[in-house]
Deep mutational scan, measured.
Amino acid sequence: GQVHVGDTTYHFPNPEEARKFAEKAAKENNLQVTQHGNTFKVE
């Protein structure tokens, strides 16, 4: 799974890890998570 936060892309071998990371980043920054397959975008 990939997580895009601003201009930075994080790669995770496990989509579940990617999702947890995205949700945590979104919560900390008052942002939203959008999911496209195994790619998550925090914005």
Rank of each mutant, 00 (worst) to 15 (best):
G1N: 07
G1K: 03
G1Y: 15
G1S: 14
Q2F: 14
Q2H: 14
Q2P: 00
Q2L: 14
Q2Y: 15
Q2A: 11
V3E: 00
V3H: 00
V3W: 00
V3Y: 00
V3D: 00
H4E: 12
H4Q: 14
H4D: 08
H4N: 09
H4L: 14
V5N: 03
V5W: 15
V5M: 13
V5F: 15
V5T: 03
G6R: 06
G6L: 08
G6S: 05
G6E: 05
G6A: 06
G6T: 03
D7W: 09
D7G: 14
D7V: 07
D7F: 09
D7M: 10
D7T: 12
D7K: 13
D7Y: 10
T8A: 12
T8Y: 14
T9W: 14
T9I: 15
T9F: 12
T9V: 15
T9L: 12
Y10K: 03
Y10E: 03
Y10P: 03
Y10A: 03
Y10M: 05
Y10T: 04
Y10H: 07
Y10R: 04
H11M: 10
H11L: 11
H11C: 14
H11R: 07
H11G: 04
H11Y: 15
F12V: 00
F12R: 00
F12D: 01
F12C: 06
F12W: 02
F12Y: 02
P13T: 11
P13V: 10
P13L: 10
P13Q: 10
P13Y: 07
P13R: 09
P13E: 13
N14G: 08
N14H: 06
N14T: 14
N14V: 04
N14S: 14
N14Y: 05
N14I: 04
N14L: 05
P15A: 14
P15Q: 13
P15S: 11
P15D: 05
P15R: 13
P15G: 09
P15L: 15
P15K: 13
E16G: 06
E16P: 03
E16K: 06
E16Y: 07
E16A: 09
E16L: 08
E16T: 09
E16M: 08
E17F: 05
E17D: 12
E17M: 13
E17W: 07
E17R: 04
E17Q: 10
E17Y: 05
A18W: 00
A18M: 00
A18Y: 00
A18V: 00
A18E: 01
A18P: 00
A18F: 01
A18L: 00
A18R: 00
A18K: 01
R19D: 02
R19T: 01
R19I: 04
R19S: 05
R19H: 05
R19E: 05
R19Q: 08
K20W: 07
K20M: 12
K20A: 13
K20V: 11
K20N: 09
K20T: 08
K20E: 11
K20D: 10
F21S: 01
F21G: 02
F21H: 03
F21R: 00
F21C: 06
A22N: 00
A22E: 01
A22G: 02
A22W: 01
A22Q: 00
A22S: 02
A22P: 01
E23M: 09
E23D: 09
E23A: 06
E23V: 08
E23P: 00
E23Q: 09
K24A: 13
K24T: 10
K24N: 11
A25D: 02
A25F: 15
A25Y: 15
A26F: 02
A26Y: 01
A26N: 02
A26W: 01
A26G: 06
K27P: 00
K27A: 12
K27T: 08
K27G: 07
K27Y: 10
E28K: 12
E28A: 13
E28H: 10
E28S: 10
E28M: 12
E28V: 10
N29Y: 14
N29P: 03
N29Q: 12
N29R: 13
N29T: 08
N30W: 06
N30T: 04
N30Q: 08
N30M: 07
L31D: 04
L31A: 12
L31R: 05
L31K: 06
Q32S: 12
Q32I: 14
Q32N: 10
Q32W: 09
Q32L: 11
Q32A: 10
Q32Y: 10
V33C: 09
V33Y: 08
V33S: 02
V33N: 01
V33D: 01
V33P: 02
V33A: 03
V33I: 10
V33F: 09
T34W: 07
T34H: 12
T34E: 05
T34R: 08
T34D: 04
Q35M: 07
Q35W: 05
Q35K: 09
Q35P: 03
Q35R: 13
Q35T: 06
Q35H: 05
H36L: 12
H36A: 09
H36N: 12
H36D: 13
H36G: 03
H36W: 10
H36I: 14
H36E: 12
G37H: 04
G37L: 05
G37T: 02
G37Y: 04
G37M: 04
G37K: 05
G37F: 04
N38E: 05
N38S: 06
N38H: 06
N38C: 09
N38T: 07
N38P: 07
N38Y: 05
T39L: 13
T39D: 12
T39F: 10
T39M: 12
F40Y: 10
F40T: 05
F40K: 04
F40D: 04
K41L: 15
K41V: 15
K41E: 14
K41M: 14
K41G: 06
K41N: 12
V42R: 00
V42W: 00
V42F: 02
V42T: 03
V42E: 03
V42L: 11
V42I: 08
V42G: 03
V42Y: 01
V42K: 02
E43P: 03
E43M: 10
E43R: 05
E43Y: 10
E43F: 11
E43N: 07
E43A: 12
E43H: 12
E43W: 11
